[in-house]
Computed example of a mutant assay.
Amino acid sequence: MDEKRRDRDAGGRARNARPRDGLGRPLPYGSTGIARQPEGVVRTPEETVREAQRLLDAGMPFHAHEVFEDAWKSGPEAERELWRGLAQLAVGLTHAARGNATGGARLLRRGAAALGGFASARPYGIGVAELIGWAEELAEQVAREAAPDRGVDPVARAPRLRGPVR
């Protein structure tokens, strides 16, 4: 395949068709990768939380971010900041796991800030206040221990969306 030609989906939109690893990094064409989450899936909030937690527990925060992104784009306006903040936490963990301390810390902090308006509530049983604390702590850790060749373990550092955060 011509590496300079952009992949397009059936609608003609640019869409990278390269296979991805468990952290969402593109692999060379022809490699075996991890199946991406289908885009545009409308789930109930319960299904969103359950699927995202499954992916986080499996060490696939990039894929969890895609689940949250679907909820952010399809959910009610009043909840968009909740789902956007959760997506940012997941992609922050993704960057931290890839060894990108600067990007990971930045996105973890941005996600925590986005969730601030939900901190006193537990929408859909999500421990927002606990997640904010988890994100701020992890952001400090990755910023302090920045090493481009060493990321955090995404399974060990995966948060619990409901209940105590690890």
Rank of each mutant, 00 (worst) to 15 (best):
G163S: 11
V128A: 06
V91R: 11
G59L: 05
A135Y: 00
A96W: 03
P76G: 08
D9H: 01
P45N: 06
R98K: 07
G127H: 10
R122W: 03
P148N: 12
A64W: 13
F68W: 15
G12S: 03
L27D: 05
A71P: 09
H65T: 13
M1A: 00
V142W: 10
R5A: 05
A10D: 12
L108E: 04
A14C: 00
I126H: 10
P123Q: 12
A105E: 07
L55G: 12
A58Q: 14
P26V: 03
E136M: 09
P19M: 13
A135V: 02
H95W: 02
A139H: 03
E66D: 15
D57F: 10
L108I: 04
Y124G: 01
A143H: 11
R122H: 13
G104H: 00
A101G: 09
R144Y: 12
D153R: 14
G117Y: 05
L27M: 08
V165W: 07
V49G: 07
T94C: 05
A129S: 14
R15N: 00
G111K: 06
R18Q: 09
V152S: 14
V128Y: 07
A87W: 08
W72S: 06
F62D: 14
G125R: 05
P123N: 07
E136A: 05
A14H: 04
N100A: 01
G116N: 07
P164V: 13
F62M: 10
E47K: 11
A113T: 11
T44D: 02
L27Q: 03
L115Q: 04
L27R: 07
P28L: 05
V42L: 09
E69D: 11
R157W: 14
L107F: 14
A10I: 09
A78V: 09
D149E: 14
E79M: 08
G30S: 04
V67K: 08
T44G: 02
A78N: 10
D2W: 07
A114C: 01
D149N: 08
I132V: 14
D21R: 13
R5L: 03
G24Q: 03
S31C: 11
T102W: 12
A87H: 02
G85F: 04
T44K: 04
L56V: 02
P28W: 06
W83M: 00
G85C: 01
L89V: 04
H63R: 09
F118P: 06
D57N: 14
G127A: 15
F68H: 07
A146Y: 10
W72I: 01
P19W: 08
R36E: 12
R6S: 06
L93S: 13
L108T: 03
Q141H: 14
E77V: 14
L55V: 13
L161F: 05
G103W: 10
T94N: 04
D2N: 14
Q88G: 03
L56M: 04
R5T: 04
V165I: 10
R13T: 00
L107G: 06
A90F: 05
A101V: 13
E130Q: 12
E137N: 07
E79I: 00
G40Q: 01
T102P: 00
A58P: 06
Q141E: 13
